[in-house]
Design a protein around this nucleic acid. Structure first.
Lengths: 151, 151
DNA sequence: CGCGCTCCTGACCAAAGAGGTCAGGAAAGT
DNA sequence: ACTTTCCTGACCTCTTTGGTCAGGAGCGCG
């Protein structure tokens, strides 16, 4: 139930691309802006490219840019691109698991977990992220009393 | 963003304990009921014991039982006991991370992710799980159109 | 008491994942 | 031709995951 460095880096780099006014941005500049190891970031950007989130050109005026408008790219897509499916249980999707005995209803719990993750991650776009105007579902969650407390 | 086998096993074993009418239940019986490797399960039960979720006695009439009433044990507690904190990012809690530049608002997104996970996992108790009467927040999520679809 | 039952504990193990680094190749621009 | 920048695969170390194995410690019973 944790977010990997890779996913975190990927979203941050994508946010940086979303904020870019014009032209391709060099990997080096992204790495510097978000303090990410360059060579590691290049692998991540390549995965984003293979998943159709980012495009790239090499050479002198080369670099990376978003393949789609920033308000059409969700955080969920980016995480899936680098981490694979969200909220798998034992490496299988929750809808494929069969529970027996007293754990039968556990499947519904995992389905709800995934749905609740999606309700956040599918809603937030890169445009939201850079503008700071997050969807209301996020604002409401962030405003709940204990949201900022460790447990 | 996945649920480990350990967490899944732990919740299932705990559900089995919650459903038990009386007396200590042997590890062997739990393992059989939920089809979990016995020796692995014993390690898990030990962790649950160390976290005050389960109690145990050895010997002829020994076994495991819940340390608290089933309606006071949440799925969140169990997951924390075996997997550690929920929704950490890069091994740190989201409230401790500092983002700069265009990723500044990413912290709020991770906070919202954690809050939304909690809103499910802290609500579901073992009693809910065995009775099948899940909290309304779960039922609503499970009832949404795409909740059962892979993406 | 002795004995079997069951939990308790640490050591170990193989495979995979996390988080990178390194070296070189291939396209784009000038 | 040459520099720049992305592209790709190989490699590396450390930790985690998902277990197994061997033995010890406490409990109950005859």
């Amino acid at each position: 139930m944790r977010v990997s460095a890779k996913a975190d880096y990927a979203v941050r780099a994508a946010a940086e691309l979303a904020a870019a006014e014009e032209g391709p941005i060099k990997g080096e500049r992204l790495a510097a802006a978000q303090d990410i190891p360059l060579q590691f970031l290049e692998h991540i950007l390549l995965e984003l490219k293979h998943n159709g989130i980012v495009r790239a050109r090499r050479g002198a005026k080369g670099g990376y840019w978003l393949a789609k408008p920033a308000d059409e790219v969700t955080v969920a897509e980016i995480i899936r691109a680098v981490e694979g499916p969200i909220a798998h249980v034992q490496s299988s999707p929750p809808e494929a698991i069969e529970y027996s005995g007293n754990a039968e209803h556990l499947q519904e719990v995992w389905i709800a977990v995934r749905a609740s993750l999606r309700s956040v991650l599918e809603e937030v776009t890169l445009a939201d992220l850079v503008s700071g105007e997050l969807p209301s579902v996020v604002n409401e969650l962030v405003a709940t009393p204990d949201a900022w407390l460790a447990r």
